[in-house]
């Protein structure tokens, strides 16, 4: 099996005037479940998008390592499965057709994809819904479909952006159990969440991101020791004491669009 890991070296990512991530250095090792924990706009999604090559760093490098050889992050995609926050399912296709479409794009035959999908679907108690149209799926069913889609090509690394956000207790628990199982089987899972308790329960290592920088990383025990607190939540608060920024990175708008927006909003406020 190909051993793969990801290396983020001194990465800064800016969107116009806003710096979403600043001088971030972190490595992700094979076989660990890593939690990216932080508030809204902390930079978790930006980091995940850098890890799957959707964003280019403004400075620094993001690299994959396959067979101990550094590879471009785009060439890592065959080894990575991604579940974005917006699950992104096609409503006119069935769950299986959504999964099959992505596995085909990953170069995996339908039989192999089906075998993998069926196995994980049983673990998620979702095997009876695979041939249903995704239109009208609940948030939990959508999340399960997206998870199966990300797993169908047998990735070594799974990137999950808020996978339990908006899920009911049972669905969230099922997803957490699956993530833990993948970690126990030697898979690498990078998992962004707001929920510290969940991170503590599932992750081997937690990375606290705040205002675009990594404030601390380590096991829950290491984080509590670093903050000299007995409780992880207390430790998190102590490590992120400064006020969280409220501005989210704007889209990469063009010069004319930016000038037009500024003219109408007089410096970025709302149109009065």
């Amino acid at each position: 099996m190909v051993k793969a890991l990801l290396k983020v070296s001194d990465v800064t990512k800016s969107f116009g005037d806003v710096t979403a991530l600043s001088s971030v250095t972190v490595n992700f090792h094979a076989g660990e479940v890593v939690g990216l924990v932080g508030g809204n706009g902390a930079g978790k999604t930006t980091l995940l998008r850098l890890l799957c090559g959707l964003y280019q760093p403004t400075s620094g490098t993001v690299q994959g390592v396959v067979d101990e050889q550094p590879v471009d992050i785009h060439r890592m995609r065959e080894h990575v499965g991604v579940v974005p926050e917006a699950t992104g399912l096609y409503a006119r296709l069935t769950a299986w057709e959504n999964i099959r479409y992505h596995s085909r794009l990953n170069g995996i035959g339908d039989d192999m994809a089906w075998t993998r999908t069926e196995r994980f679907a049983k673990l998620l108690n979702f095997d009876h819904d695979l041939h249903r149209s995704t239109r009208g799926f609940s948030r939990g069913m959508r999340q399960k479909t997206a998870l199966l889609r990300a797993l169908s090509h047998g990735p070594e690394i799974l990137l999950l952006d808020e996978p339990t956000g908006g899920l009911d207790v049972t669905s969230a628990r099922t997803v957490r159990k699956l993530v833990r199982k993948l970690g126990d089987e030697g898979g690498t899972v990078i998992y962004s969440t707001h929920n510290l308790g969940e991170a503590q329960q599932v992750c081997d290592r937690i990375i606290i991101i705040h205002n675009g920088t990594i404030r601390a990383e380590g096991s829950p025990q290491e984080l509590m020791a670093a903050a000299q607190r007995d409780d992880l939540e207390e430790a998190y608060v102590a490590l992120t004491e400064d006020v969280a920024r409220t501005d989210t990175p704007p889209e990469d708008e063009g010069k004319i669009a930016r000038a037009w927006r500024r003219m109408l909003t007089r410096g970025g406020g709302s149109i009065e």
Binding site: V80, L105, R149
Partner: peptide, 9 residues
């Protein structure tokens, strides 16, 4: 759906 699509190889 675009984000998931762009994450494929």
């Amino acid at each position: 759906t675009m984000e998931a699509l762009l994450c494929t190889p």
